[in-house]
Amino acid sequence: MTRFIDKDTRVLVQGITGSQGAFHTRLMREYGTRVVAGTVPGRGGQTIEGLPVYDTVVEAKESHGVDASIIFVPAPYALDAALESVEEGIDPVVVITEGMPVRDSVELMARARLSGTTVVGPNTPGLIKAGECKMGIMPAQVFKKGEVGVISRSGTLFYEIAAHITRVGLGQSTCVGLGGDPVVGLDYVNVLRWFEEDPETEAVALIGEIGGDAEERAAAFIGDGGFTKPVAAYVAGRAAVPGKRMGHAGAIIQGSSGTAESKMNALRDAGVDVGELPGQVAESLKELL
């Protein structure tokens, strides 16, 4: 993948007639996203928000040319919708859907890996290139075009930190919501690699949470010199109790693994500026830049 998204990206909305799909299509277009069409099997020929609706991705692609897809379909149909786009060579495929079975995510990621497609999510707020293209459900007003790349597993905490970044006078380049599920398409390392090459990104805000070891792997990658720009981080869940799932399917401490402390320590050891409070990320970035 040479880029995630920008102002020229032609976006398809799968599940465009649902309440979430229609609502966010409007907001994405207001932001400037080039949404070209939508799909809903059985609804071909209709229009919504002034956009044509197709039964299949193939038809939408034939009529408009489609670069990227964003998926709002209900969980039982999300795998089918995502595979349809993956097969058509659409990239990236952003799965907003919450509650997708893990087995389906496993299959989707395997198929996407074969075709080299980037899948963002599931259970993600999406991604945004500030000032150009919003493919997601994030509130537009907190973003301002700038120099900080943001990577987060959660949604609202990501908006919180993005808002702080804007408030201290900085802005965002591209922001990627990885998703709160146990199995997701992108991890921190994938996005850090991309940010390392991205000329518009000068520093990164890494927002983590309990569960799994994605933050530890990001720390190892940074510590080994894989990412050379400044990084400030926050990890949520220090007050979480082991064995209890904290909202996200993936946010759970199992035994002694996946704790916030372990993640914070790993990131600190890698030279990352780790904040005690979400607001400190923006302050650190301001000093680092």
Binding site: S152, R153, S154, G155, T156, L157, F158, E160, G180, I207, E209, I210, Y234, A236, G237, R238, A239, A240, M246, G247, H248, A251, A260, L277, P278
Partner: peptide
């Protein structure tokens, strides 16, 4: 949101 709520507990 799960992340924000966790961060609230932490704060």
């Amino acid at each position: 949101g799960a992340g924000l709520t966790m961060a609230t507990l932490d704060t």
